[in-house]
Design a protein around this nucleic acid. Structure first.
Length: 292
DNA sequence: TGCCAGGTGATCG
DNA sequence: CGATCACATGGC
C-alpha cells in the first residue's frame, strides 16, 4: 500500500486536529494515528516526529488534495505568535492545542455536519453522520470491500461493523428522501432540516455567503459561522456555542450569555484569525473538563 | 430523573 | 427587535 511522507511539518498534531471538534468522520487507532473519511476518500494519517504520513496516498494526491485539506500553506506559528502576544489566556490554550489546524473541508459536507451538530453532542453527531453515510452514501475510494469478504451480509446493529466506508450523500440523494427514510439515522427533529436544506440548495445552488447560508432551513448564526470557518475558509469567523459562551465569561470576563458582546470582543481581539483562536479555546475548554 | 449537548424556528409582546 | 418554548435523541 503506497504512502506519502511529508517531512519537516510544523504546528501539526493529528490528535489536536481531529479532536478539536471541527470534523466528525475519523477513528483514532491504538497507535494514535487516525483513519479519516474526507474528500471522497478514506486514508490513514499519522505523525512521526516532524513527518506527516498519509496512506494510501500518491505524490499527486498529496499535492492536489491533502496539502490544501490540511492547510499546509498557512504558517500557524506566525498566527499563534500574533494571537498570543499580550494574551496569557491564549498562550495557555495554544500551548495545549499547539498542533491544531483548520481543515479546509468540503462545503456541502460541512453544511450537513453542522446542521446535525445543533443542540447535540459530539459522539452522537459522529454516529448520526456515520449512519447517514453508511445508508445513503457512495463507497469511498480505498474503502472498497476487501477481497474474500462478501458485501451483502452487513447487519445493522453489529458493533464490529466497519466504519468510514461511505461518503456523505449528495444533495440530490438527500432531497429525494422522506423523514421516514431518515428515521434509522436517528437525527431527531434535524431530519426535516436536512431534507429542506438539500431541496433549497438544489433550487438555489450552493450558498456563497453568510446571507445565503442563513436562508437555509436549520442554519442559524452559529451553524453559519461553523460552515464559513470550516467549509469556506473564512478564518475570521468566530462560532459562539455553549462552550465558547462559558469560556468567554470564565477566561475573559465577558458578560455571561451576551453573544453580541462576545462577538465584538473576538473581532477586536482576534481579528482576521478569530476562527483559529476559537479552535484553540474550544479545544482547551473541552479537554480540561475532559469530555469524550 | 432531569439536565445537557458545537441551536434553530415559531410565536408573542 | 428580544425573550421564550418546543423540538428528537441518548448519556450521565
Amino acid at each position: 500500500m503506497s504512502e506519502y511522507r511529508y517531512t519537516g511539518i510544523k504546528d501539526f498534531d493529528a490528535v489536536h486536529i481531529f479532536e478539536c471538534g471541527q470534523c466528525f468522520r475519523w477513528k483514532r487507532l491504538e497507535d494514535d494515528s487516525y483513519d479519516i473519511a474526507a474528500m471522497g476518500r478514506r486514508v490513514n494519517v499519522r505523525c512521526e516526529g516532524s513527518d506527516l504520513i498519509i496512506s494510501p496516498c500518491t505524490e499527486e494526491e498529496f499535492a492536489v488534495i491533502w496539502r490544501d485539506y490540511f492547510d499546509l500553506g498557512t504558517d500557524y506559528g506566525a498566527i499563534k505568535a500574533r494571537l498570543c502576544a499580550d494574551d496569557p489566556v491564549m498562550r495557555t490554550a495554544a500551548a495545549f492545542g499547539w498542533g491544531i489546524r483548520i481543515l479546509r473541508q468540503d462545503l456541502w459536507e460541512t453544511i450537513i455536519d453542522f446542521i446535525i451538530s445543533q443542540n447535540n453532542n459530539i459522539p452522537r453527531i459522529k454516529g448520526c453522520i456515520e449512519r447517514l453515510c453508511c445508508r445513503f452514501g457512495d463507497p469511498l475510494i480505498s474503502a472498497l470491500q476487501p477481497e474474500g469478504e462478501s458485501a451483502g451480509a452487513s447487519s445493522d446493529g453489529d458493533p464490529d461493523e466497519e466504519i468510514l466506508t461511505h461518503d456523505i450523500p449528495g444533495p440530490q440523494v438527500l432531497a429525494s428522501l422522506t423523514e421516514a427514510d431518515l428515521a434509522p439515522v436517528r437525527l431527531g427533529y434535524r431530519a426535516s432540516y436536512l431534507i429542506n436544506t438539500s431541496r433549497e440548495i438544489l433550487e438555489r445552488g450552493m450558498p456563497e455567503d453568510r446571507a445565503q447560508l442563513l436562508a437555509l432551513t436549520g442554519v442559524g448564526p452559529k451553524v453559519a459561522s461553523c460552515i464559513e470557518l470550516f467549509g469556506m475558509n473564512h478564518m475570521d469567523s468566530f462560532p459562539i456555542d455553549v462552550w465558547v459562551q462559558r469560556l468567554m465569561h470564565e477566561l475573559y470576563g465577558v458578560e455571561e450569555k451576551n453573544k453580541k458582546a462576545m462577538a465584538a470582543f473576538a473581532a477586536e481581539k482576534f481579528g482576521e484569525y478569530g476562527g483559529i483562536a476559537q479552535q484553540y479555546l474550544f479545544y482547551y475548554e473541552r479537554e480540561k473538563t475532559h469530555v469524550q
